[in-house]
């Protein structure tokens, strides 16, 4: 398709430009001076897309930012899980991924749990918790822990599901986006890296918070989103929001530094 022949000479050029969408197998660039990053591979002198994604050229490295796909547990990710089974020595959690996670007694609480105790008095089936991934094996056995600041059981509120790839955008730079929504709607919000979001507040405000999360998800690939969201939130809630507000106290912070932000910062 986009192969060009300059009299048999090897050409060094980017065919699919930065921020454009590439489909699997598409040739992004030709020439040996480029390096394939995540989501791309080298085929002789060409850099080829290995997935559907947005092309990102950083110097010599060409990588693809995924736009869709399921969540795969990653070490130190803070996720929201649902208890799906009570085991002999812990709980099994569903974390919106192909693999379920296990939380052992030791990692569950700082309380002393006596031998043979009924584990459902701590967490029951269907409970939602915020936890952190502490181990992922090659066979994708996932261990999570609830020891750490802000890790807790979630009571009340509601759970919203978003595409996991859009999570960095929902959190925003240093948590700016989510703290803006919190400020405007006066809701408690916890964003899990696995695409589950917990929202708790006044019913009307919860609805607005859910709407704003969905709006961010839909427009994640557009730039200038923070300002647009500030305007939108102000219209919906009547609360004056400042897009440059300082992030709230660390306790509610859910930001995990993520290398790729959509469309960069505004």
């Amino acid at each position: 398709m986009q192969r060009r022949n300059n009299g048999g000479k090897m050409t060094e050029e980017i065919i699919t430009k930065d921020k454009e969408i590439a489909v699997p197998g598409e040739i992004i660039a030709t020439g040996m001076s480029f390096l394939p990053g995540k989501g791309a591979y080298r085929e002789s002198d060409k850099i080829v897309a290995q997935r559907l994604g947005m092309v990102s050229v950083e110097g010599k490295v060409i990588k693809l930012i995924p736009l869709s796909g399921r969540y795969l547990p990653k070490l130190k990710d803070r996720v929201i899980g649902r208890v799906i089974d009570v085991l002999m020595t812990g709980w099994r959690l569903e974390v919106n991924s192909p693999y379920s996670a296990v939380m052992t007694l030791k990692d569950a609480t700082s309380e002393f749990i006596p031998r043979g105790a009924d584990l459902t008095q701590y967490y029951r089936l269907g409970d939602y918790v915020v936890c952190q991934v502490v181990n992922v094996t090659s066979q994708k056995l996932v261990d999570v822990s609830m020891k750490g600041p802000g890790l807790r059981k979630l009571r009340g509120g509601r759970i919203v599901e978003v595409t996991p790839q859009k999570v960095p955008r929902i959190i925003g730079k240093d948590g700016s986006m989510v703290s803006m929504v919190k400020q405007a709607t006066n809701c408690n919000i916890v964003v899990g890296q696995n695409g589950l979001i917990w929202i708790d507040g006044e019913p009307e405000n919860e609805v607005i918070a859910v709407k704003s999360v969905k709006k961010i998800e839909e427009e994640a690939h557009l730039s200038g989103l923070t300002d647009r969201m500030a305007e939108w939130l102000q219209k919906e809630t009547g609360v004056k929001v400042n897009p440059a507000a300082t992030p709230p106290p660390a306790e509610e912070q859910t930001t995990t530094e993520h290398p790729h932000h959509f469309g960069g910062s505004q």
Binding site: P24, R51, L52, R70
Partner: peptide, 11 residues
């Protein structure tokens, strides 16, 4: 499959 975000060498 591409829409599902899976790694694919080609279409």
């Amino acid at each position: 499959l591409a829409d599902a975000g899976l790694e694919m060498k080609d279409m």
